[in-house]
Design a protein around this nucleic acid. Sequence first.
RNA 1: GCCGCUAUCGUCCAGGGGACUAGGACGCCGCCCUCUCACGGCGGAAACCCGGGUUCGAAUCCCGGUAGCGGUACCA
Length: 455
Amino acid sequence: MRLRFAPSPTGALHIGGARTALYNWLLARRPDPGSGEPGTLVLRIEDTDRERSTPEAVEQILDALRWLGLDWDEGPIFQSERAERHRQALDQLLAGGHAYHSSATGEDVRAFKARHGAERGFRGAPEDPDPARPSAVRLRLPDRGETGFDDVIRGPIRFPNVNLDDPVIARADGSVLYNFAVAIDDLDAGITHVVRGEDHISNTPKQLLVIEALGETPPRYAHLPLLHGPDGKKLSKRHGAASVQELRDAGYLPEAVDNYIALLGAGFAADEEHFSLAELAERLRLERVSKNPAIFDERKLRHINGLHLRELATDELTRRLERFTGRTGLRGAVEISAEKIQTLAAFWPLAGFVFDGPSDDPAAAAKVLGHDGAIELLRQARARLAAVEPFALETIETALRGLVEESAVKPGQVYQPLRVALAGTTVSPGIFETVALLGREETLARADGALERYG
RNA sequence: GCCGCUAUCGUCCAGGGGACUAGGACGCCGCCCUCUCACGGCGGAAACCCGGGUUCGAAUCCCGGUAGCGGUACCA
């Protein structure tokens, strides 16, 4: 199996494009069910639009792919670097009478359809090339018969040739168009399976016709369903995150992103959905991929992210969190926060107080410390903590639970004022763990600070 | 308009002629656990687009309609 993926080099790696890349990668990274041989993955860059595909933009795409844990065996191959070969194939078609020069414009095509009916494909009149006035090149299509293929996911798809326009395959300036270039490149790279988005279904007959005119054998095609935003429309910025880069910035783990986007359309049995890349590669079966478009649901991504996050060893999670936040010395706080966060971004709002001091949340203070007896209980908690020996998790817990029992109050009446004194907020990691991490000196200082301010 | 693809809970997936009283997950609601928030556990509400046909029997197969989406460039 030889596969390829060809992201648009516009800087942002769209989530749909990421899934296409991932599926190709998964398919290539496990032994072919038939031969037992591993597949080969070719990266192709469609970079003919110089405005959008700068070297920086291309590098951003590659970076996003690497972040997802994907690699490739050959490439990147730049479409722009293959101009000579494209020119040669074009000459071959021209010489063989499969293509012809045509200066027909979009206007001419519309006029043609007005005469022959909207469903009638455009057929142009061949013109002699005039060096003074270069013209575009169109592929000559047959009127009879149909062009079709057996989609691995969807089954047979057929297009009556009579409905297809003679496609322009080269511009007047000699540069070739995507549907021509990609067909040549797939052939030359020996691609056996083209796995891409559903938006390419109607491009397929054009590519097939090019390959046929060249007398070559086409690869197999599999068209993946598209990904949409929660409103059913094409996924875009206003849906929150539309690119892999945005997901990374939002604190998602690459293994969770891989897991979730692979699930959208994977058609796995419903009993499990928490997978590593290796497990995904083992299970993915193109024939089972769903045919309907999926809606990207960030809430489910969060859930799966939480699963992968809690699976990380503390040291590894610490490493990632330190890189994400740009801070160091986070390990202790990570240890007591890990089970409470779903994304990397959730860590600092939960545990940042350990390093930056209690956050200033007057509403929380008023709500908790304003209660009858809260200040007094905080004072007593402070006193007990001052006397705890040694200052460790178990002894701290014993001391505070003792206070709860002896005061005959609900646990929260002791813990919440203390929490607000230490963290500034009503939500934090476990109170005993927080006290132990802060240490006696810091804990007492913060308790004193709260007593002074609100007492 | 034309060409094409698709149609099961709000969402993602199972189920592909009888095992369907349609299953799981996310989300939502309730309860339990509990120092807050999470995690975890238990329970609940929630779907076969519509109409024909085939068949003893249709969510499942066929046809039509409708809807959604994609394409319709001298873009990729």
